[in-house]
Nucleic acid binder design. Structure first.
Length: 822
RNA sequence: GCGGGAGUGCCGGAGCGGCCAAACGGGCAAGCUUGAGGUGCUUGUGGCUUAGUGCCUGCACAGGUUCGAUUCCUGUCUCCCGCACCA
């Protein structure tokens, strides 16, 4: 067989596909649409490795599958091209971020094309393109008009290394998501999007989308809804509200704790305690490392003042503490040491009395001897009129009582906080706001958009390079035309990625972010593919943005991604394949050696796409063999195919189709492999073509080549997906096959024994079967002879003329013939 | 600590109530092919037993439900992932 030049074949078909423009799509009301999308990547200068290849191939397989099934498939690609790495490169190597980014994009496109991805390249977008970010600014203004974008001074996460603020989602665990540096708190004027307004909708919407459970759970936890009661405590006649989810413990409150970061903390501090509290506050402000937070000791100081629990009229001390969050609830808590572990630790440390108000059912706790907080349900005690009730059943009556007495009210709180969007960085979308001494905060008029990012700035500047551009900063106020100053903050990259999937629907529109009808046709994304690391960042922002755009009247739906698929991570040598781990296998490493189809096939074949997988250099060989078998099979094309072949083929089509739909790619591939093996003697041309089609999503190039070698003029990429004819599937064939395999196994077993014990070479095999099974095995005779390589003779057990010198025939059972070997 | 997921052969992994544990791929071993390699093909790969169509062991561990469990339930252990002082 002539050597197959995979590289040449790949290039050839990539060129042909592009020339014919077969992956370009337009709205077509007669066809059902399907939108497949992978998260658009950040363009870095490095090559694609197997992790990327897996991710994009995953989507491509699905897109190709849907396309062949007659859907009008939108499958676009673009680049998340604003962001810090480009700016860092500029600082370090003196390359302008624009050049860095655009060079990287050029490269990455080349690699993606070499993968054979069936993108509609006409729709390509890049977020650093002014035709894109103009609309970021446009939406920003719309959100500003609605009060959904606002500015406020607040303590924010600050990364010293990146010299920028971070959103909460970007500073999880007290570390910068980009560089891993410790995050500090800093007071700054910042822009926010009011995602908190949408907390409930974000939560509810999760029920309507088909996403992996764990992502939904992560989002639920991030939104963090809790039902509770707001209760006023009185300090010197003034009401100080607290929030609790456990009003059933209210009679056990023995002190209060206010956050050391609380803006009104000093109001509660007496002259005597002032110095001590101030020292404490300073100590708490210091940057905390992740470990410190983990093992953090509950600490606090007495403020000098007392609060009154209005239900019991008891006077209780107020402490400032380090374990109370200023941002959550009212920044102050009621402390019930007997029934909350944190409060317990604090009380024990500062020798504050405890009071048991919920007793376990099977024993009795005493306030003096309690060893740890009792947080489960129990019987109410020492709680006024509520004594004797089950604590969980007391929550409602107590809340009613509190509301009736006007001491507080039921409330719902969320953990999620507003989305901090401003960054003190250069390489991002300029925020379209002007500060005027007279008129204050003035939005840039829509007609002046885009506010262009100036190219000439000083990257060596210690602060945001944008502020080094006088031409940019100095501006006339749009209202009074007096001297004014531009906002130099830019938007974080997650603004860009919050609506890019909409822009794909109408990527070239100069007048609008997108045409409503086009978006109406394509959206929502039917199948989104991407990593789980974006669970509470991009995936929550994009949902919020879509909901906000709906309320602004731009779109008519409120969930952007109907179905989400998380691909598993590719590992090698025990750790995640990544540049920093130094264990990357590049796309070109494999494509140079075996061709890219082999890489695609292996990645789709070795394990379920949602599971993590281990890269194996040997395993790739297996996929290479499979492709070569498929190629060699072409030589065996002949005849029309008997009923057995038809049955098997249709069964394979059925299985492959079902498996592909469910993202069970390995099973789909296996059903093809089974046919390739089963038909290795001969198969009809039609069936060979079907196999090529089934294999095409995984190995688009070689199947396209073979398709044409057969004399076809069309593209297999656009061929119709085969449909299983269930009437031709006869499971009897499968059963027979299995049976004759078992017989062969038995015979082999005897062969082995004969050889080992008697050193005899078998010459001929006689099979005796039940008369009604005779037909079955007659069919199988040839294949049995072939696999054993000795002649086989078959008799019915009741055949008087049978040759049976050792009377074996009596051993025959249904499905299992008796055997005699000479 | 809380939440999610997983523990199957030498390895990657199928199976998710009985028909079948180990499909499919890899590795290893033997044989054939080849001048030798490589490729390709065939067979074997828990134990015992055997001119076979059988037994035992076995799907992390221990219990349970069931006529029947790798599959469902409970507890334990281990690993991975996410969150983490959210009142």
């Amino acid at each position: 067989m002539a050597e197959v030049n995979f590289q040449k074949i790949e290039k050839k078909w990539q060129k042909e596909w592009e020339k014919a423009g077969i992956f370009h799509v337009a709205e077509d009301s007669k066809k059902r649409k399907y939108y497949v999308l992978e998260m658009y990547p950040y363009p870095s200068a490095s090559f694609l490795h197997m992790g990327h290849v897996r991710n994009y191939t995953l989507g491509d397989v699905y897109a190709r599958f849907r396309r062949m099934n007659g859907f009008n498939v939108l499958y676009p690609m673009g680049y998340d091209s604003f962001g810090l790495p480009a700016e860092t490169a500029a600082k370090k190597e003196g390359i302008h971020p624009k050049k860095y980014t655009e060079d990287a994009i050029k490269k990455i496109i080349e690699y993606m094309k070499a993968l054979g991805l069936s993108y509609d390249w006409n729709r390509i977008i890049a977020s650093h393109d002014q035709n894109y970010y103009k609309w970021n600014q446009f939406f920003f203004l719309k959100l500003f008009e609605k009060g959904l974008a606002y500015r406020k001074k607040s303590p924010v996460n600050w990364c010293e290394k990146c010299e920028s603020v971070l959103a909460d989602e970007e500073a999880e665990g007290g570390k910068c998501w980009r560089c891993g540096n410790e995050v500090m708190k800093k007071e700054l004027e910042q822009w926010f999007f009011k995602i908190t307004d949408y907390a409930e909708k974000l939560l509810k919407g999760l029920d309507r989308i088909d996403w992996p459970e764990r992502i939904k759970v992560m989002q639920k936890n991030w939104i963090g809804k809790s039902y509770g009661t707001e209760i006023d405590f009185e300090v010197e006649g003034k009401a100080w509200p607290i929030f609790t989810t456990r009003p059933d413990t209210i009679y056990g409150v023995t002190f209060m704790v206010i956050s050391s970061q609380h803006p009104r903390l000093m109001e509660l501090v007496t002259e005597n305690q002032k110095k001590e509290v101030e020292n404490f506050v300073r100590k708490c402000q210091k940057a905390r490392t992740a470990e410190e937070i983990e093992n953090l000791d509950k600490q606090g100081v007495f403020t000098g003042k007392y609060a009154v629990n209005l239900l019991t009229k008891e006077k209780i001390p107020v402490y400032a503490g380090n374990f109370v969050l200023a941002e959550y609830g009212s920044g102050m808590v009621m402390a019930v040491p007997a029934h909350d572990q944190r409060d317990f630790e604090f009380a024990r440390k500062y020798k504050i009395p405890m009071k048991v108000v919920i007793q376990p059912k099977n024993c009795k706790l005493s306030s003096e001897k309690i060893e740890k907080a009792y947080i489960d349900e129990g019987i109410m005690a020492d709680s006024g009129n509520f004594n004797g009730m089950l604590s969980s059943k007391a929550i409602d009556p107590i809340s009613d009582f509190i509301e009736k007495k006007k001491l507080g009210k039921r409330a719902v709180h969320y953990k999620i906080r507003d989305w901090l969007v401003s960054r003190q960085r250069y390489w991002g979308t300029p925020i379209p706001i002007i500060y005027c001494g007279k008129c204050g905060v003035v939005p840039v008029p829509e007609k002046d958009l885009p506010v262009l990012l100036p190219e000439k700035v000083d990257f060596k500047a210690k602060t945001n390079p944008l502020s080094s551009s006088k031409e940019f900063v100095n501006v006339k106020c749009p209202l009074c035309e007096g001297n004014a100053r531009r906002e130099t903050d830019t938007m974080g990259g997650f603004v860009d990625s919050s609506w890019y999937f909409l822009r794909y629907c109408d990527s070239k529109n100069k007048n609008k972010p997108f045409d409503e009808n086009k978006v109406g046709y394509w959206m929502p994304v039917d199948q989104y593919v991407g990593g789980a690391e974006h669970a509470v960042m991009h995936l929550i922002y994009a949902r919020f943005f879509t909901k906000a755009l709906k309320d602004l009247g731009f779109v008519t739906f409120d969930e952007p991604f109907a179905r989400l698929f998380n691909q598993g991570i590719v590992y090698k040598d025990g750790s995640k394949m990544s540049k920093s781990s130094g264990n990357v296998v590049f796309q070109t490493d494999i494509s140079d050696k075996y061709g890219i189809d082999t890489a695609r096939l292996f990645l789709m074949f070795v394990s379920s796409p949602d599971k993590q997988m281990e890269w194996s250099d040997e395993g790739v060989e297996g996929s290479f063999r499979i492709i070569n078998k498929l190629i060699r099979l072409k030589e065996k094309v002949s005849g029309k195919g008997d009923a057995r072949q038809e049955s098997k083929m249709n069964l394979a089509v059925k299985k492959a189709t079902e498996s592909l739909e469910k993202f069970e790619y390995p099973r789909a591939i296996i059903s093809v492999i089974e046919c390739v093996d089963a038909f290795s003697d001969s198969l009809s041309r039609k069936n060979y073509e079907i196999l090529l089609k089934l294999m095409h999503p995984f190995c688009p190039h070689i199947t396209e080549e073979l398709w044409h070698e057969l004399g076809n003029k069309s593209f297999i990429s656009l061929e119709k997906w085969p449909k299983a004819d269930e009437s031709k599937i006869d499971l009897e064939f499968e059963k027979q096959e299995k049976q004759s395999e078992l017989v062969v196994d038995d015979i082999r077993n005897i062969f082995r024994i004969l050889k080992e014990k008697q050193n005899k070479e078998p010459k001929k095999v006689y099979l005796y079967m039940l008369p009604k099974e005779l037909g079955v095995y007659k069919d199988a005779k040839g294949s049995i002879e072939k696999s054993l390589n000795v002649p086989v003779e078959i008799f019915a057990v009741n055949d008087p003329k049978k040759y049976d010198p050792q009377n074996k025939a009596g051993k025959a059972k249904p499905g299992k013939p008796a055997i005699y070997i000479e």
